[in-house]
Design a protein around this nucleic acid. Structure first.
Lengths: 66, 66
DNA sequence: TCTATATGTAAAGTTTGTTTTACTTTTGAT
DNA sequence: ATCAAAAGTAAAACAAACTTTACATATAGA
């Protein structure tokens, strides 16, 4: 699974730490997500989508290997 | 977080085992999700949404405590 | 009522998400 | 070139997802 969190952050001019604070996780969690180190929980993706005012599907994308 | 997976299954007339097979998890995983025993990964919620031809937000709902 | 199918549940074990601490590297502004 | 903020990374520890096995309960049809 891939995501475009970094792009959304850029649109809203937020740092990884900003985003982490707003959705209640650590900065490393955001960093790891952006670097595709792991798959976040659905609660996290819903919170991120809500924050950026777009759908989960507009941020997270399934890949063939998923 | 809550979900309406059971309703979607009913619409498509699928058993928990059917759904589990289609998205590649165990039947107990589906059962536990429906009973709100745990929060699925974003990969799972994307697969379920795709299967039911609706958005993640139409199946999974954040609650105040999330 | 008997039987098959579907659902609920539980415990043990494995894998993966997430935090914390801490350090390095990059980037941008002055 | 320097400095501060931002991003990248890593290891240890903990929490939560997910599997497997196994059994109990419910439901519907013959």
């Amino acid at each position: 699974m891939k995501n475009n969190i970094k792009v959304q952050r850029a649109i809203y001019n937020m740092t990884q730490a900003d985003l982490a604070d707003k959705i209640g996780v650590s900065r490393q969690t955001i960093n790891a997500m952006e670097k595709n180190k792991y798959v976040p929980s659905t609660v996290l993706s819903l919170k991120i989508a809500r924050l950026f005012k777009i759908s989960v599907e507009e941020i997270f994308f399934l890949e063939d290997e998923d």
